[in-house]
Design a protein around this nucleic acid. Structure first.
Lengths: 241, 241
DNA sequence: AGTAACTGGGTACGCCGTACGCAAGTAGTT
DNA sequence: AACTACTTGCGTACGGCGTACCCAGTTACT
């Protein structure tokens, strides 16, 4: 019976019982280089060859440090979390507001995060610390652990999906090498045909409105966030009061 | 100065002024085959070669119908929406609840949707129809178009991210070819080390709790959904009342 | 009958992730 | 000091990917 080889999360890998030469690189160095590439040219541009070149190593040397590309992405997603400084909070509402604002800026700083489910591998050191911090926000309010997680998840989820939609179009255009003007010019006839058909009154209002938007992105983000927080408030005040 | 060729959304492509032989395949046939593959083996398994084989065509024949792989994914994401039957709603709350429930089932039926920003290309025929329908839910309540979109987006976003987290782990394990038991066995020492360090009390509660979960997935989903709806209710009743 | 516009699809290119193996370097043992 | 065990960096090579290019065959218009 051949056992397939299963591998643990990268942070759980055992340190080598040093015998041979000292490693020339480090995990931090590798993930920093990877982050640099993904930040400037997107996740697709992060190839093993490019990464190796960035740090001046041979391609296969990388595999002495990680077991594959997914490991690198795990490392990156945890390492960027180091930039988030865990501020103390006055109450749950301002705590969650801080979480939302911070996470939003974080993802905008590293847009490739939108491609990772949950925006991070949750078991790295910084991820763990962050989880502790944000769960603390909802602690002591009379909620059980499920409710606490759901509340935090509600906010994280809201941030993820709203930032995702802020970024999506831009990202997509870049992949195809178009500008927004290119897209508009080339699709204008189709859009016009749709609107002129009269079958899509809502779409029409959306598009017309998009030209004189009532809300800028920040405002829209905050509007939605307040809705989410209100929804949570109902539970919290119901439990503690 | 050479113009780079920019291409319109696939549904906007002009029909050919028929001269040569009749096409042997159709866009619907192609996207149905693609959906079949992605449903059973995931988006990564959906390669041009595999797709061509599935419909019994040559690989390059596909490029007579679409301009590349991304087109195919656009087609798929719109075509699956055909399965969603647009039910009339009694009031906005039950309308949004229907939207959430339906979308959740939809994504579970086609898990590869979680990899698409916004879960769909918004300009296909079914996507447009769906947009009309769900925007109608929030119409006539005294909200402006921005507020309407945000409300709907809040629900869609919630569904996306909660289903995403339901699916994420499973998906990730499959990619590496592990089972949940494999993962647990291989990472148990690491997790234990973390918990024994005493530095992660929240994580500890989460993990302990995960063994006797208070809520099953449906219940957790509905709990979160009610929070979102409550948040929206504040605005709606504030505007119309 | 001739030609223009289409079709399906074979071949080939450049990219990707990574398995394997080898020479060189270092620490522990004798 | 010599040997051995184990590490290191990394070149080569393989299979698979998306797709550019080309060509032969088919159809409709002139």
């Amino acid at each position: 019976m051949g056992e397939s080889k299963v591998e643990a999360v990268i942070w759980a890998r055992e340190p080598k019982p040093a015998r041979g030469p000292q490693p020339a690189y480090s995990l931090d160095q590798i993930s920093d280089a990877a982050i640099r590439i993904a930040d400037s040219d997107g996740l697709d541009a992060l190839t093993m060859r490019r990464l190796a070149a960035e740090i001046g190593a041979g391609v296969m040397s990388l595999y002495r440090y990680v077991s594959g590309r997914t490991d690198i992405i795990d490392l990156m997603s945890d390492r960027v979390l180091r930039e988030i400084e865990l501020k103390p909070y006055e109450d749950w509402r301002s705590g969650l507001q801080w979480l939302a604002q911070t996470t939003r800026e974080h993802i905008h700083r590293h847009p490739w995060l939108v491609h990772l489910p949950g925006n991070a591998a949750p078991f790295g050191p910084h991820g763990l610390a962050l989880t502790e911090h944000v769960m603390g926000i909802m602690d002591g309010l009379g909620l059980n652990i499920d409710e606490m997680m759901t509340s935090v998840g509600l906010v994280s989820g809201y941030v993820s999906s709203s930032v995702q939609s802020e970024i999506a179009t831009r990202e997509r255009l870049r992949q195809v090498g178009m500008t927004m003007e290119d897209w508009m010019r080339v699709n204008a006839p189709y859009i016009r045909k749709l609107l002129d058909s009269g079958k899509y009154p809502m779409m029409e209002r959306i598009i017309i409105d998009a030209r004189w938007p009532h809300m800028d992105p920040e405002e829209a983000f905050d509007y939605g966030l307040q809705r989410v927080l209100s929804g949570i408030a109902a539970t919290v005040e119901g439990s503690s009061g």
